[in-house]
Design a protein around this nucleic acid. Structure first.
Lengths: 243, 243
DNA sequence: ATCATACGGTCATCCTACAACTGCGCAAGT
DNA sequence: ACTTGCGCAGTTGTAGGATGACCGTATGAT
């Protein structure tokens, strides 16, 4: 292939790199909503790629509602409120404060998830939750298998709410958190905390099985707080101070 | 342009149509996670478009983590849990039950949003919320201006939580709901309900201004329930029955 | 002054060619 | 028989050019 000098670095595929670059420019406010982007040809020149690559990048951003392309005129930046998709920047989660906020959101979702599930769950829902719990307890160390079972446990509860959106949102948030703390966990082994973790899950399960919404919600809230603390994220402190 | 006979219909841009078609095939389970997609050339033939269009469609799905393409091998369907984006099918919201579920999720998010905001909001946050409230009350009929102010009100509260993810998620959910009920509203004018709606918002604002988290949360919960009822969606009933 | 038309710019789509990568088979060497 | 290396076919990734569709504006005729 012809040698090209690209202004953007590293490993990812070209369209993704261009999309990320544009996305950051938009998020960062370098291009304000309503403004027109450079033409595809100009972007192709700027990034040192073909117009095809630029179009694929724009296709991604357009699917998210971040920009709107109008034939014969150009592509325009949309207001952040009218996005058609939610996407979480994995890079941003390396910042401790963002991780705190995401855990806070997770706490909200999961607490209510457990509350609703306790009120609604059927016996087969409980079976699925129990199965995940057993698998979690079966492992003697907190490693990949346990983490997988942990996710299964929380997803099974979310599914037991009977609300597919709750399930989708919780799955998504949990997955983002998992992937972000995966590498960090290696430097901070948690093997000795397995019992604590499993005990918290058992408490949640018992409340669900007893169909006690309030107890389930409370147990879940404590569990998320504990889980956050175990990866070095403090939640409760923020409630008591102003902005 | 050369005449082509496409197997897929209507108005949208080609890549979007192809992406939707593939997306539905995947969601519908026609292609199970882990399976390989047909090659780009085959898809191009199948849909009656060029390979370029197929690539743009795949670029979108890839950005969502729905499929993963590996050079030299092919494209593979990913498990739904490892999506990197949340997207809500506007079509699905025409089903009343899905709308109920989305309102339920909104209720959860907004209730906690108000609770947190009451505990944390600063004076400039309150100013922004008050401004939206005044603008809402300024209109004598519930129309576009009021709806815009309504969204502003809820977003201002979400912003006052100081949690950007809460803001993003609430903005997203509210926008999805707004766009879905926009046309339906025309057949069901709500002009006479403006006072009720504004009164509910005032109650929320008062609780926020008084920094009373519990009252704010409760007022918000009732408001969302009321708002749902006003567009023909019933929420509370579901809590009392099993799946 | 008004309206129809022409023109350039831009996105949309198509096409072809080539590069990079993978998996597999085959043949030569051990 | 086993290993190693090479090449081939298939697939995605990227480049670049050509043409159609659409928009805004300038131009010119009425």
């Amino acid at each position: 292939m012809k040698q090209r000098s690209s202004i953007i670095g590293s490993v990812e595929a070209l369209p993704h790199r261009v999309a990320s670059h544009l996305s950051r420019e938009i998020e960062g406010g370098d291009i304000i909503p309503g403004a027109r982007l450079p033409t595809e040809s100009q972007l192709a020149d700027k990034f040192g790629v073909s117009r095809n690559v630029v179009r694929e990048a724009i296709a991604q951003l357009r699917a998210d509602g971040m920009i709107e392309a109008r034939q014969g005129i150009g592509a325009f930046v949309m207001a952040p409120e009218q996005r058609t998709a939610i996407r979480i920047d994995r890079e941003a989660l390396k910042d401790q404060r963002n991780m705190e906020q995401l855990f806070e959101l997770r706490s909200i979702l999961e607490t209510e998830s457990a509350t609703f599930a306790a009120a609604r769950c059927a016996s087969d829902d409980l079976d699925a939750i129990k199965a995940a719990l057993d698998r979690m307890g079966g492992e003697e160390r907190w490693e990949d298998g346990s983490i997988e079972a942990d996710l299964l446990f929380h997803r099974a509860i979310a599914r037991a709410t009977g609300n597919s959106y709750i399930y989708t949102f919780i799955s998504f948030v949990c997955e983002q958190i998992r992937q972000s703390i995966h590498y960090a966990r290696l430097t901070n082994p948690l093997h000795d905390l397995v019992e604590v973790n499993v005990a918290e899950h058992v408490r949640i399960y018992d409340a669900l099985a007893a169909h006690d919404p309030q107890a389930a919600g409370e147990a879940m809230r404590r569990h998320i707080e504990g889980a956050a603390a175990r990866v070095g994220v403090e939640l409760t402190a923020k409630l008591n101070r102003g902005k």
